[in-house]
Design a protein around this nucleic acid. Structure first.
Lengths: 223, 223
DNA sequence: TGTACATCAGTGAACGCGCGTTCACTGATGTAC
DNA sequence: TGTACATCAGTGAACGCGCGTTCACTGATGTAC
């Protein structure tokens, strides 16, 4: 097992993440990220303290300062990693637009919700961090690459457009897809169930139906 | 001026909210709500303490306990009031479906975003409270009445349906409208600008276009 | 292969601070008579 | 209209607690030679 994913300055000891028996942890940075993910999943992005994460990682309260300036930097890192995995998941679902753009967009939608389900903590850190995430260039890049998949999908779909009238602008289509997906995820999946109501269908089916109806209107899907 | 809006147990002194010069505040409950709204607007629903709200309202740290069990109860009250105003705003925009259902739904969409702009703090408390809001019956009722407007709008639109094939289920249409509106509001309005990107259009125009495209597909809007 | 050394990544003690919460209290208010 | 009184809605002192943050330190690691 290799440690220190970001700049790999060399391998340390060869121990598992848990049961530390050495003075050095070996992989504290990632251990803090994982401990924070657990805490976020339990109580939300605002539901824990920096000291608490250290405790959960089995380390003194001062140790995290070697890796993160403060609690916000930790959350930003969680969001960054989240966006990267998110981009990978979306891209895999997109699968180069196969079998066809509309079907591929549906798959993206499912992958979107699957991610929100599988990683509610990361999703929360990404979209409700509790402070502005803007100023982190790496994070912006990761977030851009996730959105890029959707934009790409919208472009491919618009390129296959066979309707009448004016061609739909791909950027707008991408934003609609993203917003509908996020809306459904935020309202009906995860901890923030402010409006958890009796749904007549699963969020997945709701999203698929919405995307189909929308794309059909653009002349992209069979009516 | 009358105080104590909820159960009006009788008029107290006749003083403005600010500059208190009496032992009793007279309207502390509402003053706490308003102070919290200011703090939420500045730092989000997680960005303040109970003691801080008391200080902002010019009152001792023990005073809020006369009105709210804890910080969460205060936020829940803010969310409740928010949903009530939200419902009123949506209903006004709906305007009994005039001039026609589709136009009225567009107006609802604009009112939705206008609320998120005008009351970002209340909106955040409603949709990102930071803890589960479920167990408050009054809050659920308020939230239901807001969603009820959208459901009503969707029903009216579906009743005016003139398409071919199967009639769209109103509940599903309502959920799509709500989700798209919330998605756009959450992503492109307010503090949580995790993905604030260069938009090619205003959130309002984005939502209107999305609703039109969607409703057109249902045979509800002119193509 | 061995050794000296620089560097790294932890420790744990210490600090001041503000929070949450309680408590007996007290000033103000409204009302019964 | 006055007065006594119950009730209400504040005060402010007190408490223990955990957090954030710093600091000199030290154990472990990797490497130059």
């Amino acid at each position: 097992m290799r440690f220190s994913t970001d700049p790999p300055r060399g391998a340390k000891s060869d121990r598992t993440d848990g049961g530390r028996d050495s003075y050095h942890h070996g992989n504290l940075r990632e251990a803090l990220v994982e401990a924070a993910l657990v805490l976020i999943a339990e109580r939300g992005p605002a539901g824990f303290t920096f000291a608490e994460v250290a405790r959960a990682a089995g380390v003194s309260a001062a140790a995290p300062y070697r890796h993160f300036r403060d609690r916000n930097a930790l959350i930003a890192e969680i969001a960054r990693q989240g966006f990267e995995r998110f981009a990978v998941a979306l891209d895999r679902a997109w699968n180069h637009g196969r079998p066809d753009p509309v079907k591929a967009i549906e798959n993206c939608g499912r992958a979107y919700l699957a991610f929100a389900r599988r990683e509610p903590a990361a999703y929360a850190a990404m979209f409700e961090p509790g402070f502005p995430l803007e100023d982190d260039a790496n994070l912006l890049r990761a977030s851009d690459s996730a959105f890029g998949v959707v934009r790409q999908a919208a472009e491919a779909a618009c390129a296959a457009w066979r309707g009448t009238g004016t061609r739909p602008p791909p950027m707008m289509v991408a934003l609609h897809i993203w917003a509908l997906s996020h809306g459904i995820a935020a309202l009906f999946i995860g901890r923030t169930d402010a409006t958890r109501r009796r749904l007549p269908m699963t969020p997945e089916d709701l999203l698929e139906a919405g995307l189909l109806i929308y794309l059909q209107s653009l002349g992209l899907s069979a009516p």
